Computed example of a mutant assay.
Amino acid sequence: MSCPDCFAGHINPGTPTGRVTSLHGLDVYVAEPSAPASEVRGIVVIIPDAFGWEFVNNRILADHYAQRGKFRVYLPDFMKGTAAPVWGLDAIRAVMKTGSLLDWITKPYHIATVLYGLVPFIVKNRPGRSYPIVEAFFTALRNSEGAATPVGAAGFCWGGKHTVLLAHGASTVIEGVETPLINAGFTGHPSLLAIPGDIEKLKIPVSFALGELDNNLKAKAIGVVQRAMEGKEGEVKVYVGAGHGFCVRADTAVEDSNRQAAEAEEQAVAFFQKWFAHI
């Protein structure tokens, strides 16, 4: 999670179209499809990357899922106000610049700036502390509007670990019947995974979108994930040339990067539609 790639990327130029409310004890961004309520296919909860629920890219992604999949999409503040600051994107660019003497002279300052923004997020949102918050939200959701509706989790980077943990079979009891908290999961460029242990424990279908050049999940680890997924309900798609964060923070000015981000959206929507149809 301390890899510079976790703090790299670009801010999307769009404007979110959803609304903000309070739901199951958390502030939540809600994106609704432009379709009658009877046509909504299920609920998708986005567990975001380090930049959290207010980051414009994450909200626009929620809007896309809602419209393309006819899902009701929730993007909760699982970090409770402790997300990594968006200005970290500019700071990491400054760290990586090496074109002039000034770039090298100012590099220590920019490194310190990145650490100032990233370290508090890591400490306050380590899985042992954050996963209970995530699980509590999904439990409340499943026991209310999700009781008779398919529920999916879409996790990115930091959120990918939580999606996989939910897919280990987290459940609640509804009218005397043990019911899984999610029916399907999707994760793009997940971080913090225990490989292969976290994959071997999967009991719920999960779709993985992995970047070939992701420094958090290198090629060797991707191969281990692929082998661990053999015989399980789910899929692994590797995006050639893509790095960490490509699903959410792709550079929209770079044609191939933008295309791969769009393809990952399609992968997630199709996977949820497939498994929601079984409910």
Score class of each variant (00 low, 15 high):
183 N>T: 08
183 N>R: 11
183 N>V: 08
184 A>Q: 11
184 A>P: 07
185 G>L: 06
185 G>A: 09
185 G>W: 03
185 G>K: 05
186 F>V: 12
186 F>I: 09
186 F>W: 15
187 T>C: 05
187 T>A: 01
188 G>I: 10
188 G>N: 07
188 G>Y: 04
189 H>E: 11
189 H>M: 09
189 H>Y: 12
189 H>P: 06
192 L>C: 06
193 L>E: 03
194 A>F: 06
194 A>D: 13
194 A>C: 10
195 I>Y: 02
195 I>C: 08
195 I>T: 10
196 P>Q: 07
196 P>T: 06
197 G>D: 15
197 G>W: 00
198 D>K: 00
198 D>I: 08
198 D>Q: 04
200 E>I: 07
200 E>H: 03
200 E>C: 06
200 E>V: 09
200 E>D: 12
201 K>N: 13
201 K>F: 05
202 L>W: 03
202 L>V: 11
202 L>P: 12
202 L>Q: 06
203 K>G: 09
203 K>P: 09
204 I>Q: 01
204 I>D: 01
205 P>N: 15
206 V>A: 03
206 V>T: 12
207 S>W: 10
207 S>A: 11
207 S>T: 07
207 S>K: 09
207 S>F: 14
208 F>N: 02
208 F>H: 03
208 F>S: 04
208 F>Y: 13
208 F>G: 02
209 A>D: 06
209 A>M: 08
209 A>V: 08
209 A>Q: 08
209 A>H: 07
210 L>S: 01
210 L>R: 01
210 L>Y: 01
211 G>S: 06
211 G>F: 04
212 E>S: 07
212 E>K: 00
212 E>R: 01
213 L>Y: 05
213 L>H: 05
214 D>M: 07
214 D>Q: 03
215 N>H: 14
216 N>V: 05
217 L>P: 00
217 L>H: 00
217 L>Y: 03
217 L>I: 13
218 K>R: 13
218 K>Y: 13
218 K>N: 12
218 K>A: 14
218 K>H: 15
219 A>E: 15
219 A>L: 09
220 K>R: 15
220 K>A: 15
221 A>Q: 15
221 A>H: 09
222 I>A: 05
222 I>W: 02
222 I>L: 11
222 I>D: 09
222 I>V: 13
223 G>Y: 05
223 G>F: 05
223 G>I: 10
224 V>W: 03
225 V>H: 01
225 V>D: 07
226 Q>Y: 02
226 Q>K: 13
227 R>H: 11
227 R>E: 15
227 R>F: 05
228 A>V: 04
228 A>N: 02
228 A>D: 04
230 E>F: 07
230 E>V: 11
230 E>Q: 15
231 G>P: 10
231 G>S: 11
231 G>L: 10
232 K>S: 13
232 K>V: 14
232 K>E: 14
232 K>I: 12
233 E>H: 06
233 E>G: 09
234 G>F: 10
234 G>E: 15
234 G>D: 14
234 G>R: 09
234 G>C: 12
